[in-house]
Amino acid sequence: MSEDVIVQTRALSKVYRDFWGRQKVRALKALDLEVRRGEVLGLLGPNGSGKTTTIKLILGLLFPTAGEALVFGKRATDVSKNERIGYLPEESYLYRFLNAEETLDFYARLFDMPPATRQERVDSLIKQVGLDQARKRQLQEYSKGMTRRIGLAQALINNPDLILLDEPTSGLDPIGTREMKDMILRLKDEGKTVVMCSHLLADVQDVCDRIAILHQGELKELGRVDTLLTVADVTQIRARGLSADCQNEIRDVISRHQGELLDMANPTTTLEELFLSIVRDSEARPGRRAKVEQPADPSAAD
């Protein structure tokens, strides 16, 4: 296994059985997959497609029925691999009677961290995920978003090389979602390898380098996001400040070259962008009605 391959699965299969050993469901069928150092891989698929099962097999939370999963060249059941792994489960399964500080301190101890390092790491992560004001509050008093943030902090407590995120944006508001995506991109910039599974396609598209699409336990597609999403026979031009004449001229040029004009209009922003812009403005000018930046009107230029 190459140094650059962080996770490798070979014909990884999982069959769930009932108490009597009878097959209930075949959750994963002979999955062959490689995750390389420094990339963000998204596992995509509808509910029950085998995304979470794959992550659990990689973590050693489940045992494969056939095949094997290697992480850092070690078997998934080898506990020592966990030294370099961070895991954020679908819901933050944390001890709700602990507060944020105690939670992170507990997980840091599980990595055998010496006290000084532990304290430093706990402080820095609590600030990083924006829970400094709530560090002494028990997790049972936390909102869903705060719980996800402390969950993310526990996943990063050991400064892991590989981070596995199961539905990382689930239950988060748009700001939380954006922060989570920014965090994933930051981790990527730091050279970490991220494997995330989600059924929120936009999230995956925003942060993943490669995606693997699973359906009914089978790998249906695997490749780079930009390659997979590129429509080869369509050209997109985005420009600012074009006059109506100029736009007509472009239409003529397309027509002259036997092209088919599919669309030429002022684009709309995404609802996410609009929402974030309003929140930013509200924070900058509290108590005032939000002023949303409108795209420039081309007719005004005339």
Partner: peptide
């Protein structure tokens, strides 16, 4: 409560 997930995925 599945809190065991976050424990056994550490080097415990």
């Amino acid at each position: 409560t599945k809190t065991i997930y976050t424990v056994v995925t550490k080097p415990v």
